[in-house]
Amino acid sequence: MTTFKLIINGKTLKGEITIEAVDAAEAEKIFKQYANDNGIDGEWTYDDATKTFTVTE
């Protein structure tokens, strides 16, 4: 398992979430479901060097 981080730069929600996932594809699926569940819709980026996803509304 690898640790992945999501940085949320939303209009109403900001913060960071860290999860353990098998790979970046699994982490992205989990993070996008979390964002969808919380009404966050924005532009996604991923930095493989730091294993960090960012979503900006």
Results as ranks from 00 to 15, higher is better:
residue 1 M to R: 01
residue 1 M to G: 15
residue 2 T to F: 09
residue 2 T to H: 15
residue 2 T to I: 06
residue 3 T to V: 03
residue 3 T to E: 13
residue 4 F to Y: 12
residue 5 K to I: 05
residue 5 K to F: 10
residue 6 L to T: 02
residue 6 L to I: 06
residue 6 L to C: 02
residue 6 L to S: 01
residue 7 I to W: 15
residue 7 I to N: 14
residue 8 I to M: 08
residue 8 I to W: 11
residue 8 I to P: 01
residue 8 I to Y: 14
residue 10 G to Q: 09
residue 10 G to R: 05
residue 10 G to E: 02
residue 10 G to K: 07
residue 11 K to C: 06
residue 12 T to P: 07
residue 12 T to Y: 07
residue 13 L to W: 12
residue 13 L to S: 09
residue 15 G to T: 07
residue 15 G to A: 14
residue 16 E to D: 02
residue 16 E to T: 14
residue 16 E to P: 08
residue 16 E to N: 13
residue 17 I to E: 06
residue 18 T to H: 05
residue 19 I to A: 14
residue 19 I to G: 13
residue 19 I to T: 09
residue 19 I to R: 01
residue 20 E to R: 01
residue 20 E to Y: 02
residue 22 V to T: 09
residue 22 V to Q: 13
residue 23 D to G: 15
residue 23 D to N: 14
residue 23 D to L: 04
residue 23 D to C: 02
residue 25 A to G: 09
residue 25 A to E: 08
residue 25 A to T: 09
residue 26 E to G: 12
residue 27 A to I: 03
residue 27 A to F: 00
residue 29 K to Q: 08
residue 29 K to L: 08
residue 29 K to H: 12
residue 30 I to A: 04
residue 31 F to E: 00
residue 31 F to A: 12
residue 32 K to L: 15
residue 32 K to Q: 08
residue 32 K to N: 06
residue 32 K to Y: 06
residue 32 K to I: 05
residue 33 Q to C: 02
residue 33 Q to S: 11
residue 34 Y to E: 05
residue 35 A to T: 15
residue 35 A to E: 02
residue 36 N to S: 07
residue 36 N to E: 11
residue 37 D to Q: 11
residue 37 D to C: 03
residue 37 D to Y: 15
residue 38 N to F: 13
residue 39 G to D: 03
residue 39 G to T: 12
residue 40 I to A: 08
residue 40 I to D: 01
residue 41 D to P: 11
residue 41 D to M: 05
residue 42 G to H: 13
residue 42 G to V: 03
residue 43 E to G: 14
residue 43 E to V: 13
residue 43 E to C: 02
residue 44 W to C: 01
residue 44 W to H: 01
residue 45 T to Q: 12
residue 45 T to I: 07
residue 46 Y to L: 08
residue 46 Y to N: 01
residue 47 D to T: 04
residue 48 D to P: 08
residue 50 T to K: 11
residue 50 T to R: 13
residue 51 K to Y: 08
residue 51 K to I: 10
residue 52 T to G: 07
residue 53 F to L: 02
residue 53 F to Y: 15
residue 54 T to G: 07
residue 54 T to W: 03
residue 55 V to I: 10
residue 55 V to G: 01
residue 56 T to Q: 05
